[in-house]
Design a protein around this nucleic acid. Structure first.
Lengths: 137, 137
DNA sequence: TTCAATGCAAATTTTTTGCAAAGTC
DNA sequence: GACTTTGCAAAAAATTTGCATTGAA
């Protein structure tokens, strides 16, 4: 693997352990990929890229691993784009900007949101999730 | 139609005109539905409900009309839920809260976000869109 | 009669599910 | 040997596309 990072690798192992899963090579590869690639990849991008070096990988395993990581709050599932989920290994609070033209997704630090003068911000959506008052009990 | 509102009907006609579309009965029905139902309906819910009183309606027309309304900023497409888009006729700034248990989506006024004490907020996602610095020119 | 809008069906895309084979403890 | 994990294939769900028919100006 290009530019292999022991740090990221160690973190990938930790996330998989946090999910209560066994560290299989496939799961490590998926976790490593999401941590190493800050491009907010889709399932298909993750699958295709890993598959290039690990041909036996199945999409089912990618889906399963990502779901487990999301449910354990180890990574974030982005739904900013209609149709597909994207994934983000950065879990500290930050916002996302999606360009309507080039479709790229930028990470925006929260304190910088009010002064996004270089961007032309057309739409702001704040999504909260958790438990509503009825379901809290 | 139950509780038919001339006000909403007039607004539906206006939105369709704003899109540069002709006010066909199907388009009016779709726009009316989204304005009248503040439940953040999916395409399928919109289609099924209107179809009950207007059997000839096709899902293609629902998709086409919704896309036009979204592109003209007449309604908002919510992507808070993985897998499907939901639609919101309220375009003034407000946030959405999705309960992880009952899956309902609540409208939250922006000034109320900091004191959402009745809710158990686990996750906050801020999505911005528009044009990035590269594409602005 | 011309052009826009509709509706159906098929195709695409994304995600989920069932299950047998392979791997791990 | 029991149990987990994987990968394939099929199914399900959401959306888009092609095209013939309908309808309005």
């Amino acid at each position: 693997m290009y530019n292999y990072s022991p740090d990221i690798s160690a973190k990938a192992l930790r996330l998989i352990a946090d999910c209560g899963l066994r560290p299989s090579p496939q799961r490590i590869a998926v976790a490593y990929y999401v941590l190493a690639n800050r491009t907010h990849p889709t399932v298909d991008e993750i699958y295709t890229d890993i598959k290039a070096t690990c041909p036996s990988l199945s999409k089912t395993t990618v889906y399963n691993t990502l779901r487990a990581l999301v449910e354990s709050n180890c990574i974030i599932e982005l739904t900013i784009e209609p149709g597909t989920s994207r994934f983000d290994g950065t879990t500290s609070p930050h916002a996302h900007f999606r360009c309507n033209s080039c479709k790229r997704i930028f990470d925006i630090d929260m304190p910088h949101i009010p002064k996004l003068s270089d961007f032309d911000v057309g739409n702001v959506q704040v999504y909260l999730s958790g438990l509503c008052p009825c379901c809290k009990n």
